[in-house]
């Protein structure tokens, strides 16, 4: 199209069409990142009204703080355990939703619910269900085991709860993505692989994944990135406690930046988070390219 237009006119139309979207997005994403990196070299605290160049101090101070190291560690545990569970459960649900049964349509619809409910609401609902005195789940655990548990003041159980709530919320999305992959595969191929004795994981790796479009694969990866960066569940469920047991990097950035106004430290921690995201994005890029060329 537009092949009969002059080059200049073509470029101009392109600029008019694409320009506004690109300008809006880049000015509110790339500029802030540059600014964040800049601020990370300063002690910039609104409360104390200081703005002073400190070199790499913010970065080293963060790593010298054992609490932050723990927070980074838990972030990695949180995301990897979440994703593994989501892939396993998502695959199971995708297979379930790909099977023919009565009421499949409604179950497919219900599957979307956890994903469309505001995350902050889910966080509060689960917090209420885990309430040590009046909670629903607390009551069930008591009836089954006879123990009165206080899940959210035990650091291990609080972490488990947070991960499970995150899995509850995000697995449906994984399931949709994986289901779309499954649907693009002929049944025969699957059955054949089964007869050849391919395990569930091998089938996933060698049939489902390659057959899924690049869109689906990258979408799955973006979803992982969004989970790292989301603070809503934590804000709703545990507010980072007990102690800092369920604090992830993103939540700490929120505390540093918006509750303590230590914008320098918040920026430095943001840079660490960006590095982690960059690593995951590189994987996404690799897969995106690979699948784009292969399909």
């Amino acid at each position: 199209m537009f092949s009969n237009y002059s080059k200049l006119k073509k470029y101009l139309i392109f600029a008019i069409l694409v320009g506004p979207a690109v300008l809006l997005r880049f000015s509110t994403s790339f500029y802030p990142i540059v600014r964040t990196i800049y601020l990370s070299f300063f002690k910039h605290n609104l409360m104390e009204q200081v703005h002073r160049y400190v070199g790499l101090n913010n970065f080293t101070a963060l790593l010298n703080d054992q609490t932050i190291v723990d927070v980074i560690g838990f972030t990695l545990v949180f995301i990897s355990v979440s994703v593994i569970l989501q892939l396993i459960l998502g695959m199971a649900i995708a297979n379930l939703l790909n099977t023919e049964f009565k009421g499949r349509k409604i179950v497919r619809t219900l599957n979307l619910l956890p994903w469309v409910i505001p995350v902050i609401v889910s966080g509060y609902v689960f917090r209420w269900m885990l309430n040590a005195d009046y909670g629903l789940i607390t009551d069930w655990i008591f009836r089954l085991s006879g123990k009165e548990v206080q899940l959210l003041i035990n650091s291990f159980y609080a972490r488990v709860s947070l991960i499970l709530v995150n899995v509850w919320r995000n697995t449906p999305f994984m399931a949709i993505v994986l289901l779309a992959g499954l649907q693009s595969i002929p049944d025969e191929l699957y059955e054949a692989a089964k007869i050849d004795g391919a395990s569930w994981f091998q089938r996933f790796l060698h049939i489902t994944l390659p057959a899924s479009s690049s869109t689906i694969v990258t979408l799955g990866l973006f979803n992982i990135i969004w989970q790292i960066a989301n603070i809503d569940i934590i804000l709703g469920l545990t507010q980072g406690g007990p102690g800092s047991a369920t604090t992830v990097i993103a939540f700490r950035i929120y505390q540093l930046g918006m509750q303590w106004f230590s914008w320098g430290s918040a920026s430095a921690l943001s840079v660490y988070l960006l590095l982690i995201v960059a690593v995951i994005s590189l994987i996404a890029l690799y897969l995106y390219r690979r699948f784009e060329f292969s399909s």
Binding site: P32, R35, I225, W226, A229, S270, L273, V277, L285
Partner: peptide, 28 residues
């Protein structure tokens, strides 16, 4: 619809901004 050199890269860069965590951009 319009083929312009570099437009693929621009699209790629635009899509990649999806990976930028909102929390990182909040202060600026």
């Amino acid at each position: 619809r319009i083929e312009v050199p570099g437009s693929n890269f621009l699209l790629f860069a635009l899509v990649l901004t999806m990976a930028i965590p909102e929390i990182v951009t909040v202060v600026p």
